[in-house]
Nucleic acid binder design. Structure first.
Lengths: 145, 145
DNA sequence: AGCATATAATTAGCGTGCTAATCAAATAGC
DNA sequence: GCTATTTGATTAGCACGCTAATTATATGCT
């Protein structure tokens, strides 16, 4: 095996992000921006920032910066939660919803480009193998601090 | 498929880096630091900074910052190349070589931890699938600028 | 020889991940 | 009911990927 799996994994993830980025480029959003938009749609509008960060798999302060930019750009708005004054819920604005629709199209085109040549069975195999490696990573990180 | 392959890929790569980081932690080097040390050993001492960056798969300015830290820490030294005054070649210092030996041990322990439960055939399968996805990424990035 | 182009190292500055620390509100325990 | 702890959002600052631009040297073309 010429290249180590760790390196390969890292580079493939990096390449994937860059390809999606190219497909998204015309929409004028950065990587963290489209990630947040797509995941907010998946999580469902009205979730808290903490919940969205967890869904994306990043930490709250990381999302904070991205959210500020999206709010600034007018795609998302924060609202105070009536039940819990600490929470702020997230909602698409009308321009945000329009942009989202275009993003979904681009996202699936990018996905298809990356997986070109892999049949359904191979995609599932890759998914299964990566899931097992990721589980190992999580096990090893118990008691990290 | 619950989680998208893109997300899974990204998180697995991230998890892998963090696990290796934990194994390396006691050695007092950052992620980019041990990457540079291990790859310099693989490339062979005396290579240029550009060559090492290419071997690692990062850009020259990214390596530059890391190299400055490693030189500062006394693990690596830069030397002027006699044939080409633009080039600088990279060499381990004595403390650097000692550290490297420990790093190699930790690196393979980390690798084994991440791949626990995957037999040889599965590892090769994962390698092959990732390689194909990475190829797609490269194809899509032709003419990127 | 002399000027244009190419290449290696470097500097400057951005994007996005993180942890640590702070503030405000909610919850728990006495 | 009041203080102690927990929780969500936020701020500050670090690590490490990038591109663009600068500098010094090498190479190539006329």
């Amino acid at each position: 095996m010429q290249t180590s799996l760790g390196w390969l994994l890292n580079r493939t993830a990096y390449g994937w992000r860059n390809v999606v980025d190219q497909y998204m480029k015309t929409l004028g959003l950065t990587q963290s921006g489209w990630m947040a938009m797509l995941h907010l749609n998946r999580s469902g509008e009205g979730c808290s920032q903490k919940e969205l960060a967890h869904e994306i798999g990043i930490e709250q302060p990381t999302l904070q910066r991205t959210m500020n930019a999206l709010v600034e750009a007018g795609y998302i708005r924060r609202e105070k939660c009536p039940h819990d004054a600490r929470r702020k819920t997230l909602w698409f604005t009308a321009p945000g919803s329009q942009l989202l629709a275009k993003m979904e199209t681009q996202a699936s085109a990018a996905r298809e480009a990356m997986l070109a040549g892999l049949n359904e069975q191979e995609r599932e195999q890759l998914h299964a193998l990566l899931s097992r490696v990721l589980d190992n990573a999580h096990l090893k990180q118990v008691g990290k601090r």
